[in-house]
């Protein structure tokens, strides 16, 4: 029995999931995490580096890695890929000008071998802002239909500001990861 299988066993026993939050800067990653953890979202500075939140969701322990999205630090994202079970890509649906950047960064990310098994949740954030693109439009713009057929993905419209849609999205993600890793016991 190798070390890796021992680690896997421990992980299975504690029902842990590792979730990586990424997306362009200003998309609301930290706000999403703070909101599902019921924390104050009114004073959040742009993330310099990363935050880790551990929270219990259903019977699972989620380790959420919230990594800063500024251009300068995007190259460090790859340091967080290892052992990722679920990937959350957060989109600012009201930032029409940078949707091209957003699509390119997402598709570059998905080419990464170490993320090939991870379930992908795309959060079309800021739906509460008047004039934001709808979830369907975001699906089209990000060209999600063209993803590899083996990829498990889901797009959910949400607002980290009001909290709407967040639970729905994370429900899907946790269920999907659980059905792959823990075989739904």
């Amino acid at each position: 029995m190798g070390l890796l299988s021992i680690i896997r066993k421990i992980k299975r026993k504690e029902k842990e999931m590792r979730i990586l939050m990424v997306g362009l800067d200003n998309s609301g990653k930290t706000t999403v995490v703070m909101k599902i953890n019921n924390e104050d979202t009114s004073v959040i500075s742009p993330t310099l580096g990363f935050n880790i939140k551990t929270l219990t969701y259903d019977k699972y322990t989620l380790n959420i890695w919230d990594v800063g999205g500024q251009k300068t630090i995007r190259s460090y994202w790859r340091n967080y890929f290892e052992q990722t079970d679920g990937l959350v890509w957060v989109v600012d649906s009201s930032d029409l000008r940078r949707l091209n950047d957003c699509r390119q960064e997402l598709h570059n990310l998905l080419k990464e071998e170490r993320l090939s098994g991870a379930s992908l949740l795309v959060l079309a954030n800021k739906q509460d802002i008047h004039g934001a693109l709808s979830p369907n439009e975001i699906t089209k713009v990000l060209n999600l239909e063209a993803l590899d057929k083996t990829r498990h993905w889901e797009l959910v419209g949400c607002s980290a500001y009001t909290g709407e849609g967040l639970i729905e999205g994370f429900d899907w993600l946790v269920q999907d990861v659980a059905s792959r890793i823990y075989m739904l016991d």
Partner: peptide, 16 residues
């Protein structure tokens, strides 16, 4: 093509 799709969205919405 996809860029065009984005541009189209931007035209039709034309954020204030």
């Amino acid at each position: 093509e996809n860029n065009e799709a984005v541009n189209e969205f931007r035209k039709s919405y034309d954020s204030p």
